[in-house]
Simulated assay, not measured.
Amino acid sequence: MISRVYRATLFGLYQLCIVAGIAMMPLAIAARQAGITLPIHRLLENVEDAYEASQAEDA
């Protein structure tokens, strides 16, 4: 039961990170033109890896 809640929470966090990344796209474009990169991809990769690991444990 706890694993289902954990997996659902990770899935929700993953989806939230995707939405935040899309919403911050204009800011990321402006920052890149200024020579700054935002590390959104790292956050997304970490959450994705955690979600996939939780699915592999249940399989």
Rank of each mutant, 00 (worst) to 15 (best):
M1R: 07
I2G: 03
S3P: 00
S3M: 12
S3F: 10
S3Q: 12
R4K: 12
V5S: 02
V5K: 05
V5I: 15
Y6T: 04
Y6D: 06
Y6V: 13
Y6M: 05
R7Y: 03
A8K: 13
A8E: 13
A8P: 00
A8F: 13
T9F: 11
T9M: 10
T9L: 09
L10N: 04
L10S: 07
F11N: 10
F11H: 14
G12A: 11
G12I: 08
G12F: 09
G12R: 13
G12D: 08
L13H: 01
Y14T: 07
Y14R: 12
Y14S: 12
Y14E: 02
Q15F: 04
Q15T: 09
Q15M: 13
C17Q: 06
C17K: 03
C17A: 12
C17W: 01
I18L: 10
I18T: 08
V19L: 15
V19E: 09
A20G: 02
A20K: 04
A20N: 03
A20F: 06
A20T: 08
G21P: 07
G21S: 09
I22E: 06
I22L: 15
A23T: 11
A23H: 02
A23N: 02
A23I: 14
M24A: 15
M24T: 14
M25I: 09
M25L: 15
M25V: 13
M25D: 10
M25Y: 11
P26F: 02
P26K: 01
P26C: 03
L27N: 05
L27G: 03
A28E: 15
A28T: 04
A28Y: 00
I29R: 05
I29Y: 06
A31V: 01
A31Y: 06
A31W: 02
R32L: 15
R32I: 03
Q33F: 05
Q33I: 01
Q33K: 10
Q33E: 02
A34G: 01
A34V: 00
T37N: 11
T37K: 01
T37G: 04
T37W: 14
T37V: 13
L38I: 15
L38M: 10
P39Y: 04
P39S: 04
I40P: 01
I40M: 13
H41A: 14
H41S: 13
H41N: 07
R42S: 10
R42Q: 10
R42W: 07
L43E: 01
L44Q: 12
L44M: 14
L44N: 06
E45M: 14
E45V: 14
N46S: 10
N46E: 07
N46F: 09
N46V: 10
V47Y: 00
V47T: 14
E48M: 08
E48S: 11
D49C: 09
D49Q: 12
A50V: 09
A50M: 12
A50K: 06
A50C: 05
E52V: 08
E52N: 13
A53Q: 05
A53H: 04
S54A: 15
S54R: 10
Q55N: 11
A56S: 12
E57T: 10
E57D: 11
D58Q: 14
D58V: 13
D58N: 07
D58C: 05
D58A: 15
A59T: 15
A59Q: 14
A59D: 15
A59Y: 11
